[in-house]
Amino acid sequence: MTGLQSMFAPMGPEAALIADLAAVLFVGAAVVLTIVVAALWFAMLGSSAARRGLAAERAVIVGGIVFPIVALAALLAYGLWVMRASVASPAASNAMRIEVTGEQWWWRVAYRDGDGRRIESANEIRIPVGRDVVLTLRSADVIHSFWVPSLAGKVDMIPGRVNTLKIVAKQPGVYRGQCAEYCGGAHALMALEVVALPEAEFASWLAAEGAQATDAAGETERQGRELFLAAGCGACHAIRGTRADGRIGPDLTRVGARRQIAAATLPATRENLARFIVDGQHLKPGNGMPPFRVFSAEELSAVVAYLASLK
């Protein structure tokens, strides 16, 4: 019963604690349900002695008051203990800090490099394996909720508030997450991926991520870049190293290196890139990007080629 996005596939300490708690809860619930059904069975069809026993007010007091109080008190203590373990342990001093901002309907992600410089990205969060990562969660518009079940429980992103969430990935891998608070229109299409990399690999990736965008390699890419700029894409999207410096939509400096586009709802193929440019409103109704049907077929493939080359 494991999937890409399941709380039964815990890959972080908090998720693991909760999975254990869940197991206890499920077994406990099964036992209680069995007791109730059995009691009901005996009440209807049991021997007269059994029925006399069940019919006494004492049975009600024992089964309906004493037993629940004892069981619930124990459970509450256990639950509070798990909670304490999650909230009361401070993050390690070498913790990685990443800002994540929920927007309708994608995730703005910002890292800080060694010099404290802000490196912006979107919809894909890369983290080092084994190191504490503290996510700073904000919202730019409505309430969203950050949830990657394999790593931890969810935390809401609320306008005017800053929440934090500590995650640790135990092993390398890709962990899918999804917005868990209804945020209007395309709420269903607001996913993200957390990619956990070994520490060394992560360090080199982060260094590369912070650099300027790769230069357009061939003629087509160059033409694509000019079209990208002339069509006004840079008013909303930034590509570091060009005059595209928009802050409205996702930063596209490394869009070609991402696994998915449209907030982790479409594989980052050239076809999908092209479809999103021309028909994004159909793929993700209501999203902030207008359809750009101003390109001819060749122009469109040039723009897509340029974007795909941004690795």
Binding site: A73, L76, A77, L80, W81, M83, R84, V87, A88
Partner: peptide, 8 residues
């Protein structure tokens, strides 16, 4: 009152 004893 119980949580007050268990949660910082």
């Amino acid at each position: 009152t119980m949580p007050a004893f268990m949660i910082p």
